[in-house]
Write a protein that binds this DNA or RNA. Structure first.
Lengths: 242, 242
DNA sequence: TCATCACCTTAACAAAAATCAACCGCCACG
DNA sequence: CGTGGCGGTTGATTTTTGTTAAGGTGATGA
């Protein structure tokens, strides 16, 4: 509800009901898209929707996992820190993507820290409620499993790429993903800061910069956060060669 | 392995019934340990148990995922190959570990190739049956989710380590895992070939060898595939420093 | 308007890792 | 017995990447 661009802080005082856009996001998520609206509603409670400012954390690694989350709007990064204090960006989630289901379900602690990288709206689903509903609703359980399956596959690919591709090749791969075409040329914007992409691809900002410079020789023009790829196929060839 | 188990082939002419050891393996697996024996039995059919020789493949990347697998005995490596033909060992599974649930459940294709690295016994569970039983048995669904959650967490850690640790540090980490102690000294055998460990850790055999050489300076002695760690804490300190 | 700051880039250097090549020891096999 | 192959090691070299340091550019705010 609420006008689709209406002042959000207005009716924040009490229960926050999902807005029209929120419902769109929920509907687009692979986890909830095929589920009954009533069921989804039953998962929500008073403080289900949180507005999170850029830089704010949604949850912290090693704290008890009491919720799973769905991005309704915005962008969230999933960061993991090692005992030695190093940080690694594991993945980045946009609207309609769920995360932390696994942690919430296994009744353990969050295995990553989540942080909004732009102002975001997050749906928080209580872990206990979630477990209940899953137990009572087999199709929901299957949807959860499918969702976990997707996450697993993404991570799998990520590992593969980290192990077998050089930095520039990983960047090429990332750009090809964004272009979402199989041939011809493409132009688009980088979805977030280069530092963040660099970290996501497992390299330093400096290496990222150099990698981008290297791709220039393959028909990739970069101005600010605008990217132009002359020849998608050529870029793919480069990627596959490493 | 065939000695101390009861008469098995007696009443089921064609069916291969799990041996006593097989039941032990099944019982130890996080996926099946808490489930009713009847349910587990209902998942099996005539060709559920396969004996796989070293080097044989259990399934191939991109082929339709019609089964999920449980290692009953032996060792299996999970390999992923990129479009460019590179190979990366994603993980290695021993007895009681399940894999490919995700692919089997999402009705898609295998996202990795599986290969036995020593002679092994594998339990193959039909994907359709699996989905049926999950739909009909909520606790089973939750067990599957928990299992997926564990796999997810392992991969997450793997990504983090690949991104934030040097080769020698990853090796130290691997050895500390094997030692399974928090202090003192330890001696044990490497569970499989060094090449394989190297690939699993995301480095070449040469780098592995050199990394091992580097750890020698930290009280790690290696002879053939026997490892001795003088001081676990010292090694951990080294690992955490990178 | 200027100062400041965050993001990004570049360069020079150092560290880490891959590559190329040679070699050892062991074992299976003719 | 040799001999070949495989797993492993080692050395020399190159490539890749991180590090350190410096500078540039655009947005923001006093």
């Amino acid at each position: 509800m609420a006008a689709n661009l209406g002042p959000k802080a207005a009716h924040f005082a009490m229960t926050i009901e999902p807005s029209f856009e929120d419902w769109l996001s929920i509907g687009r998520s692979s986890l909830f898209s095929k589920l009954d609206r009533q069921l989804v509603l039953s998962l929500l409670d008073d403080d289900s929707i949180a507005t999170v400012a850029k830089g704010e954390k949604i949850c912290r690694q090693n704290e008890p996992a009491r919720h799973c989350h769905v991005v309704l709007a915005g962008l969230v990064k999933l960061v993991r820190q090692s005992p030695g204090g190093q940080e690694a960006v594991i993945s980045i989630h946009g609207p309609s993507q769920t995360f932390m289901e696994a942690d919430a379900l296994s009744n353990g602690v969050y295995s990553t820290t989540e942080e909004a990288i732009i102002d975001s709206r997050i749906l928080r689903i209580d872990a206990v409620t979630l477990r209940e509903k899953i137990g009572a609703n087999p199709p929901f359980a299957l949807a959860m499993l499918a969702s976990a399956s997707v996450h697993l596959k993404v991570l799998l690919e990520h590992v593969e790429k980290l192990k077998s591709m050089t930095g520039p090749a990983r960047l090429a791969d990332f750009l090809l993903d964004l272009a979402a075409q199989r041939s011809g040329s493409a132009a688009f914007q980088l979805p977030y800061e280069k530092q963040l992409i660099a970290s996501h691809l497992g390299m330093t900002p400096e290496s990222f910069s150099r990698a981008l410079g290297q791709l220039r020789g393959l028909g990739v023009r970069a101005d600010r956060n605008k990217i132009e790829i002359e020849d998608i196929q050529r870029l793919r060839q480069f990627r596959d060669a490493r």
